[in-house]
Design a protein around this nucleic acid. Sequence first.
DNA 1: TTAAAATATACCAAATTGGGATATTTAAAT
DNA 2: ATTTAAATATCCCAATTTGGTATATTTTAA
Lengths: 68, 68
Amino acid sequence: MRLKEIRKSKGISQLKLAMDLNTNQNTISRYETGEREPGINELIKIADYFNVSIDYLLERTENPNIQK
Amino acid sequence: MRLKEIRKSKGISQLKLAMDLNTNQNTISRYETGEREPGINELIKIADYFNVSIDYLLERTENPNIQK
DNA sequence: TTAAAATATACCAAATTGGGATATTTAAAT
DNA sequence: ATTTAAATATCCCAATTTGGTATATTTTAA
């Protein structure tokens, strides 16, 4: 997951992200450390929040944007 | 999930796909009916197997290929 | 060098998962 | 049309995984 990198590039804290996504700070932390995995719905929420493709979020491509 | 559509377009059965992915036919069935969700690893396996992006697999884009 | 903000970890109940077995549906052959 | 086989869906259940609360640790800034 490229989550930490993306989040930091936007300059927001785990807590703010968590609140915006209706979840907890520790949940975000776990995603970032890789201790837990988000389900598909959470994955989509995160990708939409940052406006990046899921493939980018999961480090499967270099290009952040979603193709039309 | 666009799994059923993709799988059928390749003309393979749930059973063959399941065996190729080291899982069970019923697991594939559940993904296709939406009764269960694959985790990230399974998602990646499926996308790689069919050579499509995860965003396409999850119906977030019209374009099947992964961008470089 | 403290105080506050940010991030990580422990514990736990609840939800979710995959597998084996089986039922149901669909397709093919006769 | 009927039978048979192939394909797909569902039941039950043990085991894994999840998110939340609370707390600890680390980082930042004053």
